[in-house]
């Protein structure tokens, strides 16, 4: 996060736009939007100094529902856009948001490399274990035997992607799991993630009540399994071995070096031309 400049007191409401979400009633993403705006208000960030970047999918619609700068890009490429922005404009607080298909399937490669670079931004993945916008296909986090999609009638047949484990293996320095049904907790995690000087990853279990109605029951399954935060990467990974997928909390946090392009100076273009003169 960057230095906070004194700004007029803004309420969470002031960080919301007047655009009506396309989301279904009951979608978990409403709560995530609410948590983001609450976190921005709590941190008293000026709207013009914050950018929310996304890809494509239900949850990726989120930038337009905020009143800060936003970018609704193309499928799977939210993280490269966010990293390009943060590198070019380190003064801007950058949040990146999207879904499990956008982040772990088509954008999976960028996810790993964003973890490695550890650039100071916050990546919020609203994981609903389904492709909602295309009407209910299996996503990388869907169970292998989920048989509700016409595209994979026998189930996707592939073990689900493990976002936290992969984030840890790839080098993310702040790794969190949250639940959209616990907005206060999520708000706190987003505040901490923005304050963390490096790449923060928050997997938010965010039910899709339309294509995964059984997810409504998750509010009784989630638990505070990650109440304690590891500062040791290996220990954090060990804790995932007996994770049921519903442990909530900050699993891992460590301040580690962030990618920085080479040192800069301020010569003029004419100085560069001299190398070509015979």
């Amino acid at each position: 996060m960057n230095e906070v400049t004194p700004t007029p007191e803004l309420e969470a409401f002031d960080y919301k736009s007047d655009v009506n979400p396309v989301w279904c009633p009951g979608c978990g993403d409403y709560a995530v939007l609410s948590a983001i705006t609450k976190a921005l208000a709590e941190l008293r960030l000026a709207r013009e100094n914050v950018a929310v970047i996304s890809g494509i999918g239900c949850s990726s619609r989120i930038p337009a529902y905020t009143s800060v700068y936003g970018f609704h890009g193309i499928h799977g490429r939210a993280l490269p856009i966010a990293q390009g922005l943060k590198l070019a404009r380190p003064d801007v607080t950058v949040l990146c948001a999207g879904g499990d298909g956008d982040g772990f399937s088509i954008g999976g490669n960028h996810f790993m490399h964003a973890c490695r670079r550890n650039i100071d931004l916050t990546y919020i993945v609203m994981d609903n274990t389904v492709y909602g916008m295309t009407k209910g296909q299996a996503s990388p986090t869907t169970e292998a035997d989920w048989r509700e999609s016409k595209l994979t009638p026998e189930g996707p047949g592939v073990p689900p992607f493990q976002p936290l484990d992969i984030a840890l293996a790839a080098g993310a320095s702040h790794v969190v799991r949250a639940f959209s049904g616990r907005v206060q907790m999520l708000t706190k995690y987003i505040v901490e993630a923005i304050q963390h000087p490096g790449f923060s990853f928050i997997q938010v279990i965010s039910p899709c009540v339309t294509y995964r109605p059984e997810m409504r029951a998750l509010k009784t399954r989630v638990h505070d399994g990650f109440a304690e935060t590891s500062t040791n990467r290996l220990e954090a990974r060990r804790r995932l071995l007996d994770d049921d997928g519903y442990s909530l909390g900050v699993l891992f946090k460590s301040v580690e070096p962030s990618y920085k392009p080479c040192a800069t100076s301020d010569e003029a273009v004419a100085d560069l031309e001299r190398q070509f003169v015979l």
Binding site: A51, I53, F71, G73, I74, R77, P80, I81, A82, Q83, G84, L85, K86, L87, A88, R89
Partner: peptide, 8 residues
Amino acid sequence: NMLVGASY
């Protein structure tokens, strides 16, 4: 896409 982000 990094270019697009930086140029944005």
